[in-house]
């Protein structure tokens, strides 16, 4: 199958994720959209590994996955601590810093 389709799919996922980060208000959903963007990057890496005939891209996808997992740990800890203090995970409610 033509690898271009995968690149287009990845670009679409990346855009959906980016728009989601900008318009959604729940910090968990925002974070999921970031994960979607990372996975779009992974899909692109793997597709290019196929087109360039190297395995580097597949290895890089593993690195990105591992780093993304570490990011989830830190991110959910921060979101949880905010939620427990405010009973809300909305990014609009976090507005104490507006000078």
């Amino acid at each position: 199958m033509n690898p271009e389709y995968y690149l287009i799919l990845a670009a679409a996922l990346f855009c959906i994720g980016a728009v989601g980060v900008l318009v959604r208000r729940n910090s968990i959903v925002v974070f999921m959209c970031v994960e979607l963007m990372l996975n779009a990057g992974n899909l692109t890496l793997v597709t290019f590994a196929r087109t360039t005939g190297t395995v580097d891209g597949q290895v890089m996808a593993f690195f990105v996955m591992a780093v993304a997992a570490a990011e989830v740990v830190v991110g959910l800890a921060i979101i949880m601590s905010i939620y427990r203090s405010r009973r809300s995970a909305s990014v609009d409610d976090a507005n104490l810093l507006k000078a």
Partner: peptide, 10 residues
């Protein structure tokens, strides 16, 4: 960054 890295890899 990841997506940009993928593009430069391609």
């Amino acid at each position: 960054y990841v997506y940009g890295m993928a593009m430069l890899y391609g």
